[in-house]
Design a protein around this nucleic acid. Structure first.
Lengths: 355, 355
DNA sequence: CCTCGAATAGAAAGCGCTTGCTGCAGTGCT
DNA sequence: AGCACTGCAGCAAGCGCTTTCTATTCGAGG
């Protein structure tokens, strides 16, 4: 039924070994023989049996990319960049590697499940993107899994995620804390003193770091934070919408709303607008990530640009062994403050901004 | 070094065959034996060797999802929905299947490459999402590949893509033509007579169908289309921005701009705004897809909602054999016109709208 | 003309798992 | 007691490929 290596060998009048070597190209084969084999491959429309080859060679050409939410462009952009560096030439059998993205949906269990599945497939490399869950037992389980994968020869790269302790995984970490701090500093500089904060889901490193940056900025400016000013929720527009309504209910005098990311900020804008507030005249809004749509928001969104594509590409290259890991296996990737239309001097304090 | 089935068997004092059967759960094994085996698996931290198992069983638990652009939520949402139906229980070995998404970047070659890679892995199923490229030889090559995959037992489902002739692939097709027509009919009803159209990349079915719907609406209303009113470009905001500028240059009197999708529409809005035009007072704008951010645009976007998540989920279930394919293997999935703030009665013709 | 080594091809032993078939108790019949 | 079953476990034959080791050929040097 299906064509096998042996069929090709028979047709090309050579041994299976020779066909294998032609296909893998890591052993001298006479040009004439090679050509004959390739012709047979073509004529028979032969496709290598991946599992068999992986079994025999004890390696596979699968590379896994784990993302928290595939519907979120934040991950989509990174995943695309990673994949583009992996699909390219440089490997065996024509250099084709199967770069696959796995959607954990933010669930720790699924994350572990996918890791096991990839381990089962003897993946050549695994890239984990985005924030991690901070639950201690789960973090330990993931670390253990990563160690086991690494032992089995799988290269591990973290992209946009904090380093995993007790692991020799390479980490390209986003400076969420620094970015969050810069963003809030910007707002403070404009004169804001009462700032609402819409945080992401609790227990996520990304959430915590961004929030810490925000608070650090407040503290540095001597602003005492009101606990009512922080609301947690998922990283989507709807959460931003609802959280903003809640924030407004708690303290209608807020002059700025800082969102955990751009999608949340968009929802916040909608809620503010519906409540009759103008942006930024009445309330300033800030996001995080600078996703493509953010510049098109009205007003365009003040946010922190993360070099998603660059970081992803780099992670991909490192995963493929085509680029040296950063010294110490850890690199901090900084964001860039993008000041745009959604942030302005607060209404009441028309005082001259210091910045 | 690595633990194998035989190691587990030895530890549990049974034969490898028994361990395999416990793990696959498709053969009667006494409860006590099963328990002993499972304990051994646990103690040794055994992980099945995927390739070996795939080779022996001649099947794998890999399911491929092909998308044109993973950074686009249009695909992300579908892929997430598909994946969520596939990851669930119902399969072998604990019901875990590795659902992987492959990013073709819209390139026909990469599409073929991924298909081959999946064929090589003996994938259990493949779901192709989004519009196809209309290039004849390529379409034939894809069809041939799909046939071969199907022959090898891989289930094929098309989601948001037109049926593939000479193939028994199940197709859930979006009614792009009907949606495009409805959208333009809506604008015509409002009184628009000079409508610009920003189409997607040529040679894509999605592009063509949406454009055809648009033109059908124009024709039905007796509006003769000016060829200058159509511009082609990629499916992203930047293309929308530039195309709109171009459109305005060609005919500054346009009263409406219909975009190939929501991202493009967003870019169009930006361009219109920069050119000093108000939306919808001066120019109406319409998108397509109704992605999550569209409702938050200002003004909110009139568009056609496609049930991306529902269609994806259904495709996933069909791919897993958990739902009957539609009769004839083909189903048309309709969109829903979402009239929102970005479309209005054109300036000059303050005539009473007919709709 | 013979020898030696480089270059190239083949033989064969697995890689770790699945599964058809066989074997062997124990059970319920006659 | 003898028999046909049923239920459960093991044997062993691969699945299709890679790779080590071995064989062959051929050209060059002695």
């Amino acid at each position: 039924m299906t064509v096998t290596l042996a069929d090709v060998a028979a047709r090309a009048q050579v041994s299976p070994a020779t066909v294998s070597r032609v296909l893998n190209g890591n052993y001298p084969v006479a040009a004439s023989t090679r050509e004959r084999v390739l012709r047979a491959v073509d004529e028979l429309d032969y496709v290598l049996n991946g599992p068999a080859s992986a079994l025999a060679a004890a390696t596979s050409d699968l590379v896994g990319i784990l993302v928290n939410d595939i519907a979120d462009p934040f991950f989509g952009i990174m995943a695309g960049a990673i994949q583009s560096e992996i699909g390219g030439p440089g490997g065996r059998a024509g250099g084709e590697r199967l770069a696959v993205v796995c959607n954990t949906g933010g669930s720790p269990e699924r994350e572990l499940t996918y890791l096991t599945l990839l381990q089962r497939q003897r993946a050549a490399a695994v890239v984990l993107t985005g924030g991690a869950v901070e639950d201690q037992p789960h973090a330990a389980a993931v670390a253990a899994k990563l160690r086991k994968l690494a032992d089995a020869g799988t290269r591990i790269v973290l992209c946009g995620r904090p380093p995993a302790p007790d692991t020799d995984a390479v980490a390209l970490t986003f400076d969420n804390r620094g970015g969050g701090r810069e963003l809030t500093e910007h707002l403070i500089r404009l004169g804001h003193r009462r700032l609402g904060y819409i945080a992401g889901p609790e227990e996520r490193t990304t959430t915590r770091h961004r929030l810490e940056g925000h608070r650090a900025a407040l503290a540095a400016a001597g602003i005492e934070e009101d606990p009512r000013w922080t609301v947690h929720g998922p990283y989507d527009r709807r959460a931003g919408y609802e959280a903003t309504l809640e924030l407004l209910r708690r303290d209608p005098t807020l002059t700025a709303v800082v969102a955990a990311n751009d999608s949340v900020a968009l929802g916040a804008c909608a809620a503010l607008r519906e409540s009759g507030r103008r942006i930024p005249e009445d309330v300033s809004v800030a996001g995080f990530d600078d996703l493509p749509f953010s510049v098109d928001a009205v007003p365009s969104l003040t946010t922190v640009r993360l070099p998603l594509a660059e970081a992803g590409a780099r992670a991909g290259r490192i995963a493929m062994g085509r680029e040296e890991p950063p010294p110490g296996g850890i690199a901090m990737v900084r964001g860039e403050l993008m000041v745009r239309g959604s942030s302005g001097v607060p209404r009441e304090s028309s005082g001259v901004p210091r910045g």
